[in-house]
């Protein structure tokens, strides 16, 4: 006998909407990475990695 699956079951519509949200979150995260990268260079200069320890 197969045990019935527990928890919340998403409808197809909910799965579709979740996919659209996931893509949006991925895009936002990628944009944040780019922003912090560029701002680091703007604020600290391109030589940030060449400083002596």
């Amino acid at each position: 006998m197969v045990e019935e699956e527990q928890g919340i079951k998403l409808t197809d519509e909910q799965k579709k909407k979740r996919r659209s949200r996931s893509i949006a979150i991925a895009a936002v995260l990628a944009a944040l990475v780019a922003i912090f990268y560029v701002v680091t260079i703007v604020k600290l200069g391109p030589g940030i990695l060449n400083k002596p320890l």
Binding site: I8, K9, L10, E13, Q14, K16, K17, R18, S20, R21, I23, A24
Partner: peptide
């Protein structure tokens, strides 16, 4: 309770 009514918003709704 097996029908969850959240999670219906698409990116454009947000």
């Amino acid at each position: 309770s097996s029908v969850w009514t959240g999670g219906m918003g698409s990116a454009s709704d947000y």
